[in-house]
């Protein structure tokens, strides 16, 4: 099981790096998709640079989403914060159901083009899975364990830090994984408002009717998502060793 995951990760990572660093290797495959004479490899920007930008915007948005969602999840599972449950759930649901493309349309007039609107859209979009999993993880801590911790004289803070969060960690990590995977895909729309990222390749392909570009961009995004998924899964297993 663990070995299979590592092999999968190595293969996906190798394919991703090959495609990003040596796209020329794939020209025989890409040439099948387009009319002869069409450019096969996207060269306006280096693919690896776009990949790094892509990761940067997803990671920064995800960092904010995780901080906010975990904090909210902790708040609503405290005795005193229970009343905020409905509000917090509504907020994170709204973040997920409000189309990111609409968020872009609304935020561009406020913060301009490029990184910022994409960052805001992704942070809002990534909230829900992390929030719901944080709540589920914290609620899943066995009642007897909590009773024992309280009975032995642990402070509320110690119970949270030493017992609840470590026990909820695998579930919270799963939420972060889902949220990250979704956002790696969603981040491609950032290119419509000028954010640097792999979406640029896809959009250039769509505009020029070049299926080779579209496939290149989509493959890179998909492989990146697969790599993160596998890496997170091995992290989740280790969190509860």
């Amino acid at each position: 099981m663990r070995r299979g995951r590592l092999i999968g990760l190595a293969v996906a990572l190798a394919l991703f790096l090959a495609l990003a660093l040596q796209p020329g290797l794939f020209t025989p495959l890409l040439s099948l998709l387009v009319e002869p004479g069409t450019p096969l490899v996207y060269t306006r920007q280096s693919l690896i640079a776009l990949a790094v930008w892509h990761i940067a915007v997803v990671a920064s948005a995800e960092a904010v989403a995780v901080i906010v969602a975990v904090a909210l999840g902790i708040l609503v599972t405290r005795e005193k914060g229970a009343e905020f449950m409905t509000l917090a759930r509504m907020t994170s649901n709204l973040g997920q159901t409000f189309p990111p493309i609409a968020v872009l349309a609304m935020t561009v007039p406020l913060v301009g083009f490029g990184f910022q609107p994409t960052f805001i859209a992704l942070a809002a979009y990534g909230l829900l899975p992390v929030f719901e999993n944080t709540v589920a993880g914290l609620r899943g801590v066995p009642a007897t364990t909590l009773e024992a911790a309280r009975g032995m004289g642990m402070s509320k803070r110690a119970i949270l830090m030493q017992v609840e969060l470590p026990l909820a960690a695998p579930v919270i990590l799963a939420g972060i994984r889902i949220s990250t995977i979704i956002n790696i895909g969603t981040a491609t729309i950032g290119s419509t408002v000028g954010a640097k990222g792999l979406g640029e390749v896809i959009i250039a392909g769509l505009q020029a009717g070049n299926a080779a570009y579209v496939l290149q961009g989509a493959m890179l995004v998909a492989l990146m998502a697969v790599c993160f998924d596998l890496a997170f899964r091995s992290l989740e297993r280790r969190a509860f060793a």
Partner: peptide
């Protein structure tokens, strides 16, 4: 003080409640 009181009292429950991690 609540925590000081409890530190001085041993407590065993039916579900045991060992910390699984």
């Amino acid at each position: 003080p609540l925590e000081q009181l409890r530190l001085g009292i041993g407590y065993v429950i039916q579900g045991i409640g060992l910390f699984p991690h």
